[in-house]
Amino acid sequence: MNAQEWKVLNPVGAVDIEDHGGAERFDDFTGKRIGLWWNGKPNGDVFLNEVARRFESRYKGITTVRMWELDPSTTTAYGVTKEQLGLIARCADIVIGGLAD
């Protein structure tokens, strides 16, 4: 007996992929501002403080900006607003986020 042939529709949602070119990469972090964003989950600040310490010890003239000190409202696991993202972007050349959980 011939097997039945089913023609069924794909349930997966289509994604429009936009090429934004990727974030700029630096060969050297000297003099750069490193933004550190924490989502408020336990030990995320410990993690990022250590990241900051290692960058500061490795590169001269680096500035680390702890967003949770600059604007505590950015420390959230429940969505950062466009305005908050704008602030983060203005404060840093590179942003490192710590999600934690």
Binding site: Q4, E5, K7, V8, L9, N10, V12, A14, V15, D16
Partner: peptide
């Protein structure tokens, strides 16, 4: 990413 309405054939 796949086009909508893609038909899949299964025996």
């Amino acid at each position: 990413a796949r086009p909508s309405s893609e038909l899949i054939s299964i025996q």
